[in-house]
Computed example of a mutant assay.
Amino acid sequence: MASDLSDLLAPELIVIGLPAASKKALFSQLGALVAPTLGIDARLAADALALREKEGSTGFGGGVAIPHARIAGLPRIVLAVGRLAQPLDFGALDDAPVDVVAAMFSPPQAGGQHLKALARVARRLRDRALVAKLRGAGSPDAIYALLSDHGVRDAA
């Protein structure tokens, strides 16, 4: 199913209540979150997100941001999802503060796969009803179910 993001997601990379007072703090927390799973240095991941963000805001509206970075040594594209404790100014096009973040990490050689995955994530997170459900989800497992085909089939 096109809306299924389970191939990019890992349940351990979903967190609720990230306390980030700035983009820099958020990127540090996301780096620390993904480092053990990806086998990379947390600072490397945070710096890669910050470097990409300098090119332009990854806040695309509706309170959602998709920061992304390419990092050498990654075996595949991975998505980490966080719901922030407090909305954060992200410089989004609609000026809305961000409270839902999907951070994507790709190997440099992913090229077209990176762009396709980014488009899939953006398409999914443009769905306002889904984003509302993500905001109301009570656990990382609930967020995983909402973003995976399993959740689409089994949602009750």
Rank of each mutant, 00 (worst) to 15 (best):
S3G: 09
A92M: 03
I14M: 15
R128D: 12
A50C: 06
G82W: 02
L125V: 06
V64E: 03
L26P: 00
A92H: 04
D141T: 11
G136Y: 04
S6K: 01
R70K: 15
P36A: 05
D149R: 08
A155I: 01
L88C: 06
A103M: 14
D94K: 03
L84K: 13
R126A: 08
R128L: 15
P36K: 09
T58S: 06
G39Q: 12
L79A: 04
R120W: 09
A103V: 05
V100C: 12
A132K: 15
M104K: 06
L18N: 07
L38M: 14
G136N: 15
H68Y: 12
R76Y: 00
V152R: 08
A137H: 09
I40K: 10
L130E: 06
A103K: 12
Q109G: 09
I14G: 00
D4A: 05
V98H: 11
R124D: 03
I143H: 00
P67C: 08
S148I: 05
K23V: 06
K23N: 02
G39A: 11
I77Q: 00
A20D: 08
L38G: 03
G136R: 07
A92L: 07
G17W: 07
I66W: 08
A50F: 14
G59Q: 13
Y144T: 02
Q29E: 13
V78Q: 15
P107R: 06
A32C: 09
P87G: 04
A155S: 11
V34M: 04
V34N: 08
A20N: 08
V131T: 14
P108H: 01
L8R: 01
P107W: 11
L9K: 13
R153P: 00
L33D: 02
E12A: 13
G151D: 13
R123H: 14
A137Y: 04
I14P: 02
S148T: 04
L146T: 09
V131E: 01
G73M: 13
K54I: 07
